[in-house]
Amino acid sequence: MDIPYTTTPREDTGLYNAKVGIWLFLASEVMLFGALFSSYILLRVGADWWPAPRSILNIPIGTFNTAVLIISSVTVVLAWASLKMNQLSKFKLYQGITILCALIFVGVKSVEYTEKWKHYEIWLNDGSNYSGHIDVNGKHNPFFYTHNKLVSEGVTEITFTKDPHKYGDPLPEKAAGGGEAHAAEAHAHESMVIKTEDIKRLSAFVPAHSTYFAIYFTMTGLHALHVIGGALVMFYLWITAGSWFRSRPEQFTNRIEVSGLFWHFVDLVWIFLFPILYLM
């Protein structure tokens, strides 16, 4: 006996196996991200510090990435529809665009990440507190420094270039467009030399900075892993499309439908992540 309903639907459920499987998997994904969203709410409600709305991430870049994912969601469903209409070349085009969108998304995200890892907040023993960029021993904008790392490397002082508007503070009236853009304005950037012993805490905008960045990196990181995973699967289906579709068209169309469902889910998660992390 062979396993039935791998391609054709079962009469009483009207479903083929893989479709049941992917929906069950997505149900568990809903619980996974649901738990993270719950954590987001609780961390935010109980937070000592939470960035003011729109002050923290680059909104134009975030909007661009949202649009990229939405476009990929349209092309992925068009790719499936092309197969249903027996148009393999159109399928290849749409599937290719989807994969390209995935690459763009991950690329933009990694640029966003590295920007954060070079950007610092410093708390001094006198109670003052700034955001900006640092120079350590002639290294401009180094990654991942902390107070402990300065001490262990025997660094006695660093140069700190202050942002004109402290990152994460409420935006001044009429200053739309995100803190980063604001910071890039042509104000004079004030540089100062700070002794290591005067520093209470130094942290780049990495997960350890605060619970906001912890949940930001965890959620978007997990989401990015989903994007990469989905892109790998779609790439595999893209390069094997020709022979597979010619020999087993119905099975291949099902595979595209199932991978498409996963892709839409990834898009759907981002639709929530974008406003709660960038805008609110």
């Binding site: 069950l24 149900a27 568990s28 994904e29 619980m31 996974l32 719950s38 954590s39």
Partner: peptide, 10 residues
């Protein structure tokens, strides 16, 4: 299926 993912997140 539905109770384990929150622990995976945690």
């Amino acid at each position: 299926l539905l109770a384990f993912p929150p622990l995976e997140a945690a």
